[in-house]
Design a protein around this nucleic acid. Structure first.
Length: 268
DNA sequence: AAATGTACCAACCGCTCGTGG
DNA sequence: GCCACGAGCGGTTGGTACATT
């Protein structure tokens, strides 16, 4: 059976929009609004387009106050900061950047920022990080803290809010998380894959083959990275060892060397 | 100058979520 | 509570421009 298509695919035009189509759509919406029904809109104005396509065209190209052109350094920083804390929630990120669309940001991230951020990893393929373990494989007894429900970091039994979905600060959670002192409290970290910080740790997983937390007062290995202010201090504590080395093993990440030694991960 | 590779971006696809009947 | 439908979202694709060999 499957899902019913949103429009008659055989009778709708695909591909690039012509100036005439743009003009029809723009003038209609400017005068009448969408009427809350994109699906019916193309027929109303005599366009042989899928309603979804009309919506996308309007949101990403025709609506007023859109920015076109390159991203500023400030925008880079905001995107990177939000990405590491909330992941690929492009619509949320777009809401923090007036004039930019989720599609803009997604494209920009996929084609430029991701490489900028992860590119250094490629320089050192000789000493790749160990394979990332599936949650079920990861021994949790050494976990130092857990990220529990959305918007909170739990350290030892205390829950500290990072942010809620509708009040995301522009440069955010990284600072907050740094305040979360390591706790010796065992915690099942990977219960928390859906937490806002999940993709941040996922990125780190890919880079280092381990998960990290920050502790104040230590040298900042991420200085200048991701637009993180240089005053931030990151560290090293091990969350979930990617494997269980007998005594000491070193991992080469994209920007720094990690040394695992007797249950603790340290950066050189 | 031609061939090939890379970067960029518009648009599409299919899924999930919210809402109204 | 269930179902159908539209809106919204994130992932992916394909075309084009530009860079490199």
């Amino acid at each position: 059976m499957g899902r019913a298509p949103c429009c008659d695919k055989a009778n709708v035009k695909k591909g690039p929009w012509s100036p005439e189509e743009d003009s029809k759509l723009k003038s209609y919406i400017e005068q009448n609004g969408t009427g809350g029904n994109w699906i019916a809109l193309p027929q109303k104005i005599g366009l042989k387009r899928c309603g979804k396509s009309c919506r996308l065209r309007w949101l990403n190209y025709l609506r007023p106050n859109l920015k076109h052109g390159g991203f500023s350094e400030e925008e880079d920083n905001i995107i990177c900061s939000l990405y590491v804390s909330i992941g690929s929630r492009w619509s949320v990120i777009a809401s923090q950047l007036p004039g930019r669309t989720d599609n803009d940001i997604k494209n920009y991230w996929n084609t430029r920022l991701k490489k900028k951020v992860l590119g250094k990893q490629r320089r050192d393929n000789n000493r790749r990080a160990p394979k990332r373990l599936e949650p079920a494989e990861i021994p949790v007894q050494n976990a130092a803290f857990s990220v529990s429900n959305v918007g909170h970091v739990v350290t030892g039994g205390e829950s500290t809010p990072i942010f809620s979905g509708d009040s995301i600060p522009p440069l955010l959670a990284i600072n907050e998380v740094s305040l979360m002192a390591a706790s010796a409290q065992p915690a099942p970290f990977f219960e928390t894959q859906q937490a806002p910080l999940g993709s941040f740790f996922t990125e780190l997983d890919h880079m280092f083959g381990c998960s990290l937390e920050k502790v104040e007062g230590m040298e900042d290995p991420f200085s200048g990275f991701l637009g993180v202010p240089e005053t931030l201090n990151w560290s090293s504590a091990l969350m979930c060892p990617p494997m269980a080395p007998a005594s000491s093993t070193s991992y080469q990440g994209s920007m720094l060397q990690c040394v695992y030694n007797q249950g603790q991960m340290h950066f050189d």
